[in-house]
Nucleic acid binder design. Structure first.
Length: 345
RNA sequence: GCCGGGAUACUCAAGUGGUCUACGAGGUCAGACUGUAAAUCUGAUGCCUUCGGGCUUCCCAGGUUCGAAUCCUGGUCCCGGCA
């Protein structure tokens, strides 16, 4: 599948590196292009607080701001606000900034407008993400609220797009929320599909937590979703194999902080290890002259040894974070492309 | 040789009569990581344990005391100053 965006096409299945604050931590644009990133994710909540969506707009939009001329998807911030003990009503979510403690109120309208200001290619609906072990009642309420909010997101989005040519408008994706309950998931899927949006996402804690539950959740709704629309599984990809599973289950897009975050914590993807990774902090690598992964074609594996990366990690040298992130992302993209090739055959 | 200061766990270092297996930091080991409040966070770090607890530590040897890392005596080593 090819997804067209204002900043070029995205071929699926696609993994999107997370660049929350308009930066994929430690990596430059060139690094990202080299490892094979087509599209990156940025976060509305973080950018709304700092530097402020209106300021990004004034500076010419996020692509110009961060010098990334390729597609960008922004998350609405619904997921982030969940961790800030928000007061959620049907009107919106009140929460305190993690930066200065100031009180903010985000609504479907303002969250959508903020993403439009940022200049994202794909904007996500403002949703009420259902946490782990949520009761049926909680899940149902959050689902209904997510639906209500979706209609308001669409209204704001359409007001914006009507003033422009449709071709120059960002896409809006609706989000399915149903927790672990198949009937809610299906109800939510039907509702979101009925809105006739350019893309559909599935979110909540049931997605991404463990591969089996993720696959089962997607399987519960896949038959209801149009085959010609992208399905984005939010937050999937802790391990490279998770990507394969989620794509096999029928998703076309996913994102996860794991490749970059785990890299910074010392965990580097490796095709021959259990858990699909090695912990470079272990002293067993102190004198190991092998590359991180013998099959990997990334610049880190081509040019540096495990011993050196072990040393950099232990010394907290800034170079480590970049080299490690390059490896994990390249490994991730390589995993996706190998999967894509086997599917084509 | 004299005067003064010091010796605490893997390292640095706090503690100057009981609440001390001994603050804190680093190191080491283990664990966590989902639409990034994350170059972060958690736990362990004298020995043994039936997880109740038991035993042994603060340079060494004595001593005072109900009780000592802490006070006293002697010793060993290190640092500064003067010879």
């Amino acid at each position: 599948m090819l997804i067209t965006t204002l900043h070029g096409p995205v071929s699926t299945p696609v993994f999107m590196p997370v660049g929350t604050a308009a930066a994929v931590k430690s990596l430059s644009r060139q690094d990202l292009e080299q490892v094979g990133a087509q599209i990156i994710l940025a976060n509305n909540y973080h950018l709304y607080l700092r530097p402020g969506s209106h300021n990004i707009k004034r500076l010419g939009g996020i692509h110009k701001f961060m010098n990334w001329p390729h597609p960008i998807l922004t998350d609405s911030g619904g997921f982030q606000i969940q961790s800030l003990h928000p007061k959620i009503t049907n009107e919106g979510a009140e929460f305190k900034s993690h930066i200065d403690g100031s009180t903010h109120f985000l609504t479907p309208e303002t969250a959508t407008q903020s993403q439009l200001d940022i200049g994202s290619d794909i904007i996500m609906a403002f949703d009420h993400s259902i946490p782990k072990n949520a009761s049926y009642e909680y899940a149902k309420e959050a689902m209904s609220r997510t639906h209500l909010w979706l209609l308001r997101c669409i209204k704001t989005w359409k007001q914006h797009t009507s003033t422009l040519k449709l071709l120059h408008s960002p896409a809006l994706y609706g989000i399915i929320q149903g927790g672990e309950f198949p009937d809610l998931l299906r109800e939510s899927a039907k509702f979101v599909v009925a809105q006739d949006l350019p893309g559909i996402a599935i979110g909540g804690a049931v997605i991404g937590s463990n591969p089996r539950q993720t696959s089962e959740t997607i399987a519960a709704v896949r038959d209801l979703l149009p085959k010609n629309l992208p399905l984005y599984a939010m937050g999937v990809g802790t391990r490279p194999s998770d990507l394969i599973n989620v794509f096999k289950a029928g998703a076309n897009m996913c994102d996860c902080v794991a490749p970059t975050r785990l890299a910074r914590a010392g965990l580097l993807y490796n095709s021959e290890s259990k858990n699909e990774r090695i912990d470079i902090s272990k002293s067993q690598f102190k004198l190991d002259q092998n590359p991180v992964d013998s099959q990997c074609d990334c610049t880190t594996c081509r040019d540096y040894t495990r011993a050196y990366l072990h040393h950099l990690f232990k010394s907290r040298e800034l170079t480590y974070y970049r080299l490690a992130s390059i490896h994990n992302l390249r490994f991730t993209f390589k995993t996706v492309s190998i999967f894509t090739q086997t599917q084509a055959v």
